[in-house]
Design a binder for these strands. Sequence first.
DNA 1: ATGTAC
Length: 485
Amino acid sequence: MNTYTAGDITLEQVREYVWEIPQEGDMGTPARVFASEELLEQIADDKTLEQLKNTTHLPGVQKYALCMPDGHQGYGFPVGGVAGIDAENGCISPGAVGYDINCGVRMMRTNLTYDDLRGNEEELVDALFANIPSGLGGGGVVEGDIDAVNDVLDRGMAWALDEGYATEADLAHCEDEGVRQESDPSAVSQKAKDRGKNQLGSLGSGNHFLEVQRVTDVFREDVAEAYGLSEDQIVVLIHCGSRGLGHQVCNDYLRKIEKTHSGLLSKLPDKELAAAPAGSQLAEEYYQAMGAAINFAWVNRQLIMHRTRQVFERVFGQSWEAMEMELLYDVAHNIAKKETHDVNGEEKELFVHRKGATRAFPAGHPEVPGAYLDVGQPIIIPGSMGAGSYVLCGGEESMNLSFGSTAHGAGRVMSRTQAKKDYWGGDVQDELEQEQIYVKAQSGATVAEEAPGVYKDVDEVVKVSDALGIGDKVVRTYPVCNIKG
DNA sequence: ATGTAC
């Protein structure tokens, strides 16, 4: 048998691109990594594999804890990690969702082609940058008060529809129609709401961005047609999350859970995996507060998309409807959700934790929106600002292999600190401009931290997903304009 | 990711 040893962890190869950490000692289940050897090498020296192994200690983990091909180390639980945990006898863990609750991406189509846009790139990037709030701190498309925030937390994109920031079609083309019903604003602290009320419709910082892209490759004509995508088409990708509000929710509940469920915590190999037992009051409250933050993030991306439509109207002198600026889909990358999955022949309700992982439901799954039911849900995988991105469709094997999940991006290979030593923001911008990619950011440091070289090869990540049949290649895009914090 | 700090 082929094995791969990293530190004191030895993985056994199950088959091509599937590696297993066998169950031993106190591990509740085995763990699996979906990766090529090239990708495995990139996580051999950090804490990713140790964290993945630790994850199997959470009570109620089913089948195996998983790491997607873009995985890397995170807070307690790897980014790129997926765990299906028994919703009746197991637990829920904020660290296995992530600090940025419902960080995610949406893609908006247009009927413009790259030729329509050539020569206007600088005007467009300037207009987007001037009109879409970005960077750390406050300021959003909407200046909300506490009542608005409560409504957003309760109703998600239904709020945006009523306020004139969204259409029925926008809601229909969003994971869960843009609303987590099991949310409760009263489970969210005043402090979290205060942080969120002036951040409604803001990109934030770090790896968050808005990118105008062109479709360069079509791999699956039939699915691309169902998604309304074709070569040379201009699309817009929006990547952001729940800002300070979601961060505060995560922090609030980590502290409460550590205190109240210290007995469970003491049995876990890492304090950062703190978890509330299923059925406990804190499990319920965290689930409702997380749901509220999920709703906030969907509204956040909706407001940014709304503003983007207005900017395109101004720059191109046409209505957004005439430019057919329709939402393709919006996917969450950091959530836990109650879902029913087959576990060894038995239907079980699980808290599926996806942290830096995308839902990847295949054709025919009842939760895939009607328009995509025959081809599977769209999966949007942003790569770096120099590499471009992919749209995949939910793969036939995802329900068997990965609790209906796949990768979420390229995955970092270099820390932010190291990136700032290796790159200078202005130089990165100049090099990208040589490739006709126009980048504008609040901070040069952010550009350095997000330089293309700090990311894994998105083509390699997607190759693994496609080969395993958990998310299949549909189209590839290449950056044109990018704005970020 | 994040009012980049408990």
